[in-house]
Amino acid sequence: MAAEPGSVRPGGRTARVRSAVLAAAGDALAEHGMAGLDLADVARRADVGRTTVYRRWGSVPALVADLLADMAEQSLPRVETGSLLEDLLANARLVRRTLVDPRQGALFKAMIAAAACDDRTAEALHRFYAARIAEWAPCVDQAVERGEVPPGTDSHEVVRAVSAPLYYRFLASGGPLDEAVARRCARAAVEAARAGVFVSD
Rank of each mutant, 00 (worst) to 15 (best):
V95F: 15
E80Q: 10
Y54M: 13
R56W: 15
L94S: 11
R78I: 01
A90K: 04
Y54Q: 14
D70M: 06
P77D: 13
M71G: 07
E80W: 01
A90D: 05
E80L: 02
L68S: 04
S75M: 04
L67W: 00
T81F: 09
Y54L: 15
Q74C: 10
N91C: 11
W57S: 06
D66R: 06
S59I: 00
L63K: 09
T81R: 14
R56N: 11
L94H: 15
S83D: 13
W57G: 13
N91G: 09
L94C: 12
D66V: 04
E86N: 13
D66N: 04
G58W: 00
V60I: 05
S59T: 04
A65H: 12
A69P: 06
S83V: 06
D87W: 05
V64F: 03
R55F: 15
L67V: 00
L76K: 15
A65R: 08
L94M: 09
R78F: 02
A62P: 13
E86V: 10
M71F: 11
E86S: 12
L85H: 14
Q74T: 03
M71V: 05
N91P: 09
L85I: 03
L85E: 14
R93Y: 12
T81Q: 11
R55I: 14
V60R: 09
Y54T: 15
L67D: 00
E73Q: 07
V64T: 08
D70W: 00
A62W: 11
V79S: 01
A72F: 01
L68C: 05
A69D: 09
E86A: 13
A65E: 10
R93C: 06
A92P: 02
G58E: 03
Y54P: 13
Y54E: 13
R55Y: 15
V95A: 04
G82W: 11
S83Y: 02
L85F: 11
R93T: 10
L88N: 01
R93A: 07
N91A: 09
E80V: 04
L76N: 15
T81N: 07
L88F: 06
A62F: 08
L94R: 14
D70I: 01
A69T: 05
L94E: 12
A92W: 00
V64I: 09
A90L: 07
L84G: 04
G58L: 07
A90I: 09
Q74I: 03
V79P: 01
Q74L: 10
A62D: 12
D70N: 14
A65P: 13
L67K: 03
L89D: 01
A92M: 03
S59P: 09
R56F: 11
A72W: 00
